[in-house]
Computed example of a mutant assay.
Amino acid sequence: MDLPVMPPVKPMLAKSVKKIPPGMQYEAKWDGFRAIVHRDGPELELGSRTGKPLTRYFPELVAALAERLPARCVVDGEIVIAHDGRLDFDRLSERIHPAASRVAMLAERTPARFIAFDLLALGDDSLLDTPLVERRTALERMLAGVGAPVHLAPATTDVEVAEEWFERYEGAGLDGVVAKPLDLPYRPDTRLMYKIKHERTADVVVAGYRFHKSGPVVGSLLLGLHDDRGTLQHVGVCAAFTARRRAELVEELEPLRMDPPAGHPWARWADETAHETSRLPGAPSRWTGKKDLSWVALRPERVCEVGYDHMEGDRFRHTAQFRRWRPDRTPESCGYGQLAEPVSYDLAEVLSGSG
């Protein structure tokens, strides 16, 4: 491979802001795997956000991109999988599997799509120093008439349209809106764009914690919500505490510690078969490898309020943010019914640009 922008390339990133800024290019924030495609004739590589290749996990995309992209180009975008008209991150995560036979089976059963939103090189020319508005024009020209599973990400410079997308597209599983300055060059691994994400709050049960990698202090709190049967389901974690607060939390939560954890609703977490029927912390993960997922069980008696952006099935999609303790709430009152559900919106409408 011999391109003007060679792999690995870490993608340009965005920093969080509360409101959609004016005077920029706006796109939906896709909830998938960020990927940079390098193609040089018969050679094609999908690079992940960390620079590691994703190529072997998406053979159907390799074939489609080789058929639909120019012979020499570097394209930034997102790999997604859609199910029932919305993005499905769980099905996407299943693709990261060591067995080639399973990858091939999933590629046929749940084929992926590639959403292109930036162009880093074309032919013998690097576009890293080219302003965004010119890169976008070149990308639109390059992908004119392209067909599924390769898509050109819808974009607008109308802030009112962006605000409408922010409200409507969440129902299709999208993650918010990204705002990009029109004169922005492409700067890998630098936060020069802006992301505006949905945020809501929920009252959740604190039922355990994991230690921080720095030592015997709290790294994250394990959160639960009661389902319709009254079962406490693990829905995610909240983190981002200061070093001082991590140490304080160990002492603060010590009276609730269950050692051994007999009688805890998640006591069977170490039994791999238990994860097939219940949502428990410490589930085997193809992402974390041999990372220690053990945790300290707490009597599920304390309630806290957390901020979250959106749900993926029955759990928080991303790490929640601790807001405050809620001594006025009982654990039994913390159920899924309090969670706001976005209005359903078909992903096909987003990709068609008619939304």
Rank of each mutant, 00 (worst) to 15 (best):
R56N: 02
E341I: 11
H234W: 15
Y26H: 06
T277H: 12
R317F: 11
K10L: 12
T330G: 14
R39Y: 02
L347T: 00
G307Y: 00
T156P: 07
D259N: 13
R102N: 11
V75T: 01
L182H: 05
R102G: 05
V204N: 12
P260N: 03
P281V: 10
A116W: 03
F166G: 06
P131T: 06
L13P: 06
L3N: 10
C238T: 13
K29M: 06
D292R: 11
L192G: 01
F211L: 15
L61Y: 08
A155Y: 10
L143C: 09
D175S: 15
P131I: 05
P7L: 08
T319M: 12
D183W: 08
A148D: 10
R200W: 10
L152G: 09
A71K: 05
M258W: 05
G313W: 05
G171E: 12
G145P: 03
L192K: 00
F166V: 02
L120Y: 04
T50M: 01
F241M: 08
G51F: 00
G176F: 11
L69Y: 01
R315I: 00
M1F: 12
V103P: 07
T50S: 13
Y169F: 15
L253T: 01
H38N: 08
D189Y: 07
A138K: 14
E199R: 14
